[in-house]
Nucleic acid binder design. Structure first.
Length: 834
DNA sequence: GGGCGGTACTG
DNA sequence: CAGTAC
DNA sequence: GCCC
């Protein structure tokens, strides 16, 4: 996913280090110490044993210092900007600068070292000297640093990769527009790059150890916040801006640390940690997907936050190296902006073209997982696509860097060709829908963009020409990149989620298509009122199938081909697609009776039979019911809480009910196992009710437990609908509860106690969804088994529906074991929606 | 043409 | 027993 | 209503 963010991490990372350019580094802070270090390196050759460093001379040479600093500042900027797109021009330019700088500083015969930071070298009193023998760099502890920095980069690779992967889940669960969520990614990528500039001075001041440590804490805190808070505005900060800053701490820390420890093998060591980013961006995709599958995206965020705390460990390992030079690092950089550059028309035009280039580049990248999933590709395989794209781009980058250095390499030509190729590919991607094609797309896009994105900078250098403007020019281009990223992703505000998710070509078809789902459901509801149970059943099934269908339906035949959609429903779908409506539904829903029936059957305990009877007796409104109808006890309760009980509660409220009930139950017996199932366990953002499943590990204490629980819950339970149901070893309570909070509403609550050996099957059953249970039962039946809330039985003998032999229960200690018996791979609750 | 889950509560 | 809900 |  790193590829996606041309304006950020990418460019800031040293993607390739020309062998002759040993001072290249990822960050300005780094470059400063390095170029400083180049001085001792030269001297080494003269006196390899020891280096005398006269710290006091710093004062005398303050003038020189400012010259050095000034040169170095330019050097920093140049290196930062050009890193992986090193071209002859700016390479030369930098080399000249280096040379100059070296001369100036060798003249002073002075190297500034910091003797406080590494006691073992410099703490000897009176000898303001530091031993910079070869032993202190490139070996020993340096390798520990290298490994740590490598893992730090692996952690960094998490940033955009995992965000891209979880974007679909976030959109689904927050029910926000895709653009709103994508904007988080835009912020993340922008701040990843932007804060690199801001953090530079901080690294200078406090060293990379502190920065990495804070980065780690920041990230963990961000993840925790994201986990706890359910507010998209907060995510803009917790997942976007602040996370971006956290990751840039890592991104800065690793190369800086390495550069403090490696002298001769600096290029090598920096390449090694770059590999860390590639490895990271490949690993995090699938890892994130797996975590989401098991714990939902919030859980995944929390776990990732925990994993990011490893940064603290790494920070502890990153002790300041022998090559650190604090005194120079503390120098401020003054960057002056030269307006002359804006008079270069070619450059201005180039800026605009870069804007459009990046505009078109970012979106397909960011949207790859969504595109894949909308074409029916599994979420895991979508994650693999991202990994493939990352792998391809990170493989090609060093190659481009290497070739870019060759004299015969015409970067203007290559840049032009590849950006056109990228455009063609992006256009063509509309037609790529199968997994194989998308794999090819991911590879090509990864490679092509890895080619032209770094080249944007080299070409800029060529256009700017004058060395004194290069730094400004590159800064402008990078700003343009960042702006394009932000704007392009924000522009998605014009598209809504459904369109995006279905990769829409014809807007109208889409609208009608999504409408058809609602209409099918409406038809189902209508028929429910008229009492045709099985027709209702089929409409619902068809509506669910259409909802899952990843593409717009463009023909009658296509509709007919969907399982669950027969000729009659396909006809209706086609009518909806063509006309946007359905006459049959209009007729039915305009009948007053039918509306009345659906209103009345909203009362808990009132079904279509009762409702229809009432309507035929002239009882058509809730007011009529209250005055005239004869109500059962549960129906009275249902009527009393009519509005509350029809409303779904926010997930977070279900969570608080969970906490409350859990605590009360543990007060009875601390060994009780309490699980809140239903849509809550499936990770839904709203829940119609809460289902508690309670068991006792000793296998027998569940007897007589339920009455105690009900008593214990006291006035939390406001009404009892069905006080006790017994079947087998299970007991079930259905009731109404209300939290003791300001403005709390009444909610439906079910509590079930089960024997330990039925626990797994009970969890499965009460987690649902209803449709999922149905398909599981069906599958079990086909395999000669039967699945119920009590057990999974095998050896069931059925004869024309009647089962002659109930079979024997299979041991099912866990949900996984149930899936295993049925020959299925485990499905986490959040994937059991159908 | 028959199945589409099987069962326990309320009245 | 029918009706309802899980 | 759909599917076997």
């Amino acid at each position: 996913m790193k590829l996606l963010t041309p304006s950020t991490s990418k460019q800031v990372e040293p993607a390739f280090l020309p062998p002759d350019f040993n001072a290249s580094s990822g960050e300005g802070s780094l470059s400063l110490s390095e170029s400083d270090n180049d001085i001792p390196e030269k001297k080494w050759k003269i006196s390899p044993e020891k280096w005398i460093c006269a710290k006091s001379s710093k004062v005398k040479h303050s003038n020189l210092n400012s010259i050095i600093t000034e040169k170095l500042e330019l050097l920093i900027l140049l290196q930062r900007m050009s890193k992986d797109s090193m071209t002859e021009e700016n390479n030369d330019c930098i080399k000249n600068l280096e040379l100059e700088t070296k001369q100036v500083s060798t003249d002073t015969k002075c190297v500034y070292c910091d003797d406080e930071e590494h006691g073992e070298h410099g703490s000897k009193k009176n000898t303001k000297c530091i031993n910079l023998s070869e032993d202190s760099t490139d070996s020993g502890y340096a390798w520990v640093i290298l490994v740590s920095a490598f893992f730090l980069e692996v952690l960094t690779g998490c940033s955009l990769t995992s965000f891209g992967i979880m974007m679909v889940d976030i959109i689904d669960s927050t029910e926000q527009r895709a653009s709103n969520i994508a904007f988080i990614g835009a912020l993340l990528s922008s701040f990843l790059g932007l804060s690199g500039v801001l953090l530079g001075p901080i690294v200078h001041r406090f060293g990379c150890r502190v920065v990495v440590f804070s980065g780690s804490l920041i990230l963990a805190l961000c993840c925790l916040t994201t986990f706890l808070v359910r507010n998209v505005i907060v995510y803009y900060f917790s997942m976007g801006i602040v996370s971006g800053v956290g990751y840039s701490c890592y991104q800065l820390g690793a190369p800086v640390a390495v550069s403090h420890w490696f002298q001769k093998k600096k290029a090598f060591s920096l390449s090694v940690i770059m590999t860390g980013i590639s490895v990271g961006s490949m690993l995090w995709g699938p890892i994130t997907r797996l975590l989401i599958n098991k714990y939902s995206w919030r859980g995944a965020v929390l776990i990732i936050g925990g994993l990011q705390l490893h940064g603290c460990l790494i920070a502890a390992i990153l002790k300041p190296g022998p090559l650190l030079s604090k005194s120079l690092l503390e120098k401020k950089r003054s960057s002056r902006f030269n307006k002359e550059i804006l008079k270069n028309k070619r450059f201005i035009i180039y800026c605009f073209s870069n804007f459009t280039l990046l505009y078109g580049h970012v979106v397909p990248f960011m949207m790859l997982p969504i595109k894949a999933e909308s074409n029916g590709i599994s979420k895991m395989n979508a994650a693999v696509l991202v990994a493939i794209m990352g792998a391809c781009s990170t493989t090609v980058r060093p190659l481009v860097g290497y070739l870019g250095d060759k004299a015969w390499f015409d970067k203007n030509f290559v840049f032009g060709i590849f950006s056109i190729l990228g455009g063609i590919l992006t256009s063509a991607s509309f037609y790529m829908r199968t997994y194989n094609l998308l794999i090819i797309y991911a590879c090509l896009f990864g490679m092509i963009s890895a080619t032209y994105i770094p080249l944007t900078l080299s070409v800029a250098v060529e256009i700017v020409k004058k060395p004194e403007f290069i730094a400004n020019g590159l800064a402008i281009i990078l700003t343009v990149h960042g702006l394009a990223t932000l704007v392009s992703i924000t522009a998605f505000g014009t598209l809504d989620y459904v369109q995006l998710k279905n990769n829409c070509e014809k807007d109208t078809v889409f609208q009608h298509f999504t409408q058809s789902v609602h209409i099918q459901n409406a038809l189902a509801t209508t028929y429910e009122s008229t009492g045709d149970r099985w027709r209702t059943f089929s409409y619902r099934k068809a509506a669910a199938a259409v909802k899952r269908y990843p593409r717009p339906i463009t023909s009658f035949e296509e509709a007919l081909a969907i399982p669950g959609v027969g000729e009659r429903v396909a006809n209706k779908i086609w009518e909806i697609v063509e006309t946007g409506g359905l006459r049959k539904l209009e007729e039915l829903s305009n009948q007053e009776d039918i509306k009345a029936i659906s209103t009345l059957s909203g009362i808990w305990g009132v079904g279509q039979t009762t409702a229809r009877q009432w309507v035929s007796q002239g009882i058509k409104t809730l007011e009529d019911v209250r005055n005239k109808a004869k109500l059962t006890r549960p129906q009275q309760i249902g009527l009393k809480h009519y509005d509350d009980l029809l409303e779904r509660m926010p997930r977070e409220e279900a969570g608080r009910i969970d906490d409350f009930v859990r605590e009360k139950c543990l007060g009875i017996d601390a060994d009780l196992v309490i699980l809140c199932c239903g849509s809550y366990r499936r990770g839904k953002e709203t829940c119609g009710d809460v289902d508690f499943l309670i068991t006792h590990p000793d296998g027998k204490s569940h007897h007589d437990l339920l009455p105690k629980i009900i008593k214990r819950l006291g006035s939390f339970l406001t009404d009892h609908l069905v006080s006790l149901q017994q079947k087998g070893g299970q007991s079930k309570y259905l009731g109404v509860c209300k939290l003791d909070e300001e403005g709390a509403k009444h909610r439906r609550i079910d509590i079930i106690t089960v024997p330990r050996d039925e626990y797994a099957c009970a969890i499965m059953y009460f987690t649902g969804s209803a449709h999922f249970n149905r398909s599981m039962r069906h599958l079990a039946g086909k395999m000669g088994m039967s699945l119920s809330e009590h057990s999974l039985n095998k050896g069931v003998v059925r004869k024309r529906g009647e089962k002659l032999n109930p079979g024997v229960p299979l041991p099912t200690p866990t949900e996984e074991s149930v899936f295993k018996h049925l020959g299925l791979k485990y499905l986490p609750p959040n994937e059991r929606d159908h």
